[in-house]
Simulated assay, not measured.
Amino acid sequence: MAASYSRALCKVGCRILDSPAVHRTGTVSYLLGNAGACGSRRAYGTGGAGFRSKLLSSVRGTGRGGRVLGCAFLLGGGLGLYQTVRFRVQQHLAEEQSKVQAGGLKLTLYQYKTCPFCSKVRAFLDYHGLPYEIVEVNPVMRQEIKWSAYRKVPILMVDGDVQLNDSSVIISSLKTYLISKEKSVSQILSCYPEVKSKNDSGKEVTEYFNKYWVMLSEAETAVLYPEKGMQKEEMKWRQWADDWLVHLISPNVYRTTGEALASFDYIVREGKFGTYEGFFAKYVGAAAMFIISKRLKNRHNLQDDVRQDLYKAVNDWVAAIGKKRKFMGGDKPNLADLAVFGVLRVMEGLQAFDDMMANTKVKFWYRRMEKATMNKEGKN
Rank of each mutant, 00 (worst) to 15 (best):
R269K: 14
K272P: 07
M230A: 14
L216P: 00
Y276M: 09
M215Q: 11
Q231K: 10
A222V: 03
W237H: 11
I171S: 00
D166W: 00
Y177T: 04
V158S: 04
V253T: 08
L224E: 03
V195Y: 14
E259P: 05
E270V: 08
S180C: 06
A262L: 12
G271H: 06
S172V: 08
T221K: 05
D200V: 11
F273P: 10
H247W: 15
E220W: 05
P226K: 07
Y266T: 11
T256G: 04
K236I: 09
E233P: 07
M235W: 07
Q163N: 06
G274R: 13
S180I: 04
W240T: 09
N165C: 12
R238E: 14
V246L: 13
S190D: 11
C191W: 06
Y208H: 02
A241L: 02
D161M: 11
S201T: 08
E204D: 09
G258E: 11
K203T: 13
T176H: 00
Y225F: 15
T176F: 01
P193H: 05
S184A: 07
E233I: 09
S201M: 09
C191G: 09
V185Q: 01
M215Y: 13
T275W: 15
L189S: 03
E234P: 07
E207D: 12
G202F: 06
V223H: 02
K272V: 08
Q163E: 12
V158D: 02
D242N: 10
D200A: 11
S167E: 02
R269I: 06
S186M: 02
Q163D: 07
L248D: 04
R269F: 15
K196A: 14
L189P: 01
P251W: 07
M215P: 04
S180V: 03
V205K: 02
P251N: 03
K196N: 11
I267W: 08
